[in-house]
Design a binder for these strands. Structure first.
Lengths: 220, 220
DNA sequence: AATGGACTACGTATAACTACCTATTTTTAA
DNA sequence: TTAAAAATAGGTAGTTATACGTAGTCCATT
């Protein structure tokens, strides 16, 4: 990487945060921010329409339209050479496991110092990945626990419609309300609910909501 | 304010965000950041122990230990000469109304541009307050609506028993199961459920689960 | 042309939850 | 020690969710 700047794309819905990070990174001579995206769709558009790709994407998880988890999944498939550093406010177990599973190369809580961020970027460039202590701790915990099923056996994917219904359930809408909003029969919504319960392995609404939040289908 | 720098304190639990804003503000010749706090307690300690007070506090709402709303309330009482600009990710009605009620002079979503932030700071210094268009819109909506109760009266705290029931609800237990586990009548559990719905302002289980997760009553 | 997945929809039940009441006992705090 | 809050329990009724079936249509891929 000598004599060649690390190209970075920032993906975060908060402009103030993006600009802040931009000025932080601007002070680094070997780093160049080539694009800023406010959501996953903007990011995907940029990657598709520009031949100049970044080395690293600093990706916030909580973004409108297309969130960070989904965007990471897509990018890991379509542009595997791009390394992704997941940014989030909290480093909960489900966050970390999710992001690593979909292809994130590193994980950075927003409460990190600028030094840690620079270190992470450089480590990812040099080694291809970088997990700090707390992330490693979570990962070893997960691997040594018996609750591996949930993460090792990949969950059945929800369909688009099922996700829509799930989102509305999480917004406290009843079956009738969901049906009205989606212009479909309440019976159809019931079918979707049944499928959701089966696919997510839930007993009732509570399980659905927890699943939706853990899997970032709804962001709270 | 000619020849005198505007003294600012940053209060936000995310160090990356703080540092970013710091560098953004550093480029302004008439602005000086005199302190950074990671939570409300640090902020209050600084104000109590330093004679040099800020003109403005940029206050994030979501902070550990002592959050932005509570901190704002305290500061508005104890140091009324300090102007507070509330920072948040979303400009929901409840956020805005809460912050204005406890004494915030302005309101800035994190998705604002740096220019808007600078403008807001200068307006607050010159006029004492500044509400942008979207905030004004929300405020007029609120004043003209009759649903003021729910936002003017702050929510009641949950009791220990209610929290226990809420946790079990989030674990997908039914009323009967909860009753059995707590050695109480199902009717009592129902009473607790009713109270939970009222206190949390929820319509159904989904709302309860979201509330529980947001308020860290259950950790996922 | 056929297969399979997604989306749609319904029948018939039962289980579970929510609304709106009252009311007693126990615990806590003024 | 007295009032307030919390925890307990019930009546009655209505609404909503879940279980377990079946089945047609659309659409993309084979």
């Amino acid at each position: 990487m000598i004599g060649k700047k690390i190209k970075i794309v920032l993906a975060d819905d908060e402009e103030l945060f993006r600009k802040g990070i931009y000025f932080l990174l601007q002070r680094e001579p070997n780093i160049e921010v080539i694009f800023e995206a406010a959501n996953g769709n903007q990011l995907m558009d940029f990657l598709k329409n520009n031949s100049k790709h970044p080395d690293i994407i600093l990706m916030d998880l909580k973004m409108p339209l297309l969130n960070g988890v989904e965007a990471t999944k897509l990018i890991a498939q379509q542009f595997p050479e791009i390394k992704i550093i997941a940014l989030t406010s909290y480093n909960t177990k489900s966050f970390i496991v999710n992001m690593i599973e979909v292809g994130a190369s590193s994980f950075l809580v927003k409460n990190s110092t600028p030094q840690e961020m620079i270190l992470t970027i450089n480590e990812v460039i040099n080694k291809g990945f970088y997990y700090n202590e707390s992330v490693m701790k979570v990962l070893t915990e997960v691997n040594s626990s018996s609750s591996q099923k949930s993460i090792l056996f990949k969950q059945e994917e929800l369909t688009t419609r099922e996700r829509e219904v799930l989102e509305l359930i999480c917004s406290q809408h009843s079956t009738a309300e969901i049906a009205e909003r989606l212009f479909i029969s309440p019976r159809t919504v019931e079918t979707h609910r049944t499928t959701l319960l089966i696919k997510t392995g839930s007993q009732n609404i509570a399980g659905l909501v927890v699943y939706a939040i853990q899997n970032k289908i709804v962001i709270i």
